[in-house]
Write a protein that binds this DNA or RNA. Structure first.
Lengths: 193, 193
DNA sequence: AAATTCCGACCGACCGGTCGGTCGTTTATA
DNA sequence: TATAAACGACCGACCGGTCGGTCGGAATTT
């Protein structure tokens, strides 16, 4: 396996379990089955590892959503698929979500201090544009009711984020699992003709 | 001013700016205008300061929402007021939101010793129950359409969280500000008769 | 009311553990 | 054998938490 990737995978595991700060480079090395010094052959600093994780998350997310958009599914199906990312997420990538939460906070803080942090913002705007286009197409094709596309797109993205956010503390809560599904169904009912 | 409160206020400022880990007890002391040792006269550890902040956030939030519920406003007005918490939040308490984001992640990880992670969960369930009751009353009074109350309540809470979450990175973005308002309007249109 | 004792809030120098990052050495590879 | 890759002991900055000491004022004694 590519060693850089191997280190990133180890880092995700360690950071998810320990947090960005408590997660030690030494632990990452152990987890990756290599020496600590080797980590520094591939990354200049701990910060650079954070960056790498963030970049992968962002490009993975966008790739996935773009793939959905360019498929031949109906608009309804496309939106449903996007919703399912949040529903399924727990089984698939909740490790990285914990990390993203912290990176997000760090990012915001960087912004406050004047750092340039267009990455997350850019991802959001791209995501928003894609969802907006799908919604607009759905309206045109009479799948969805007439709507304020920007408003609905924002509401949808916010809801999906919120669900992920809440899923973090409601791990393994059957009742919450049902609520999530009901929420998305309620949303779909609100837009589908 | 009560010194404990004074320390907590200083801590919120410091942690919001530096993060939970980088925020130093020494800085809190300086910010509070007291000596470092004095901090430890009022709090046993840094962790205990985290918990104090978390407790205040939770009880403030619930107090506020309970106050809205028990008012004489129409159900529509009540839901609108709850939505406005997320909209206005930025000007009022965005400092603490950054901290809450990190505490939330820590909580999930179960890293805080002696910390009862049912606090956030409990707050959410209470919040959910209150919103559900308001929605149900609104339906009964023919203000709202018939709906799956659990689904809509979950969707609403998730959307509000998501908006806060996104607001963190879209600071001072006029366009996003408009999107937020449009999102909430879209939601209200979906439920009001 | 002056002098003395007592109290505890306040302080910050210091200690000890931690961990990111370095670098000289060892091992693998070409 | 030369070059590159891997390694982990080591360094030192950093910071949470401690503790012996200070000091202003309240209580008590004279």
């Amino acid at each position: 396996m590519d060693k850089k990737e191997q280190i990133i995978n180890a880092a995700v595991q360690v950071f998810a379990k320990q947090g960005l700060n408590k997660g030690k480079i030494a632990d990452i090395a152990i987890q990756a089955g290599i020496g600590k010094g080797t980590v520094y052959e591939y990354f200049k600093s701990k910060d650079e590892i954070f960056q790498a994780i963030e970049n992968i998350f962002i490009s993975d997310t966008l790739d996935y959503v773009e793939e959905i958009e360019s498929s031949n599914d109906s608009s309804t199906k496309k939106i449903e698929k996007i919703c399912n990312i949040s529903l399924d997420l727990h089984s698939q990538m909740d490790d990285s979500m914990l990390i993203i939460a912290e990176l997000w906070a760090q990012n915001t803080r960087g912004q406050l201090q004047g750092h340039d942090s267009t990455l997350f913002v850019g991802m959001y705007n791209d995501y928003f544009d894609i969802v907006s286009r799908i919604l607009k197409a759905g309206v045109r094709q009479k799948e969805f009711r007439k709507m304020n596309v920007k408003g609905v797109a924002t509401a949808l993205l916010a809801m999906l984020d919120g669900i992920i956010w809440q899923s973090l503390i409601f791990t393994n809560d059957k009742e919450f699992s049902r609520r999530k599904t009901a929420a998305i169904k309620a949303f779909m009912n609100g837009i589908i003709i």
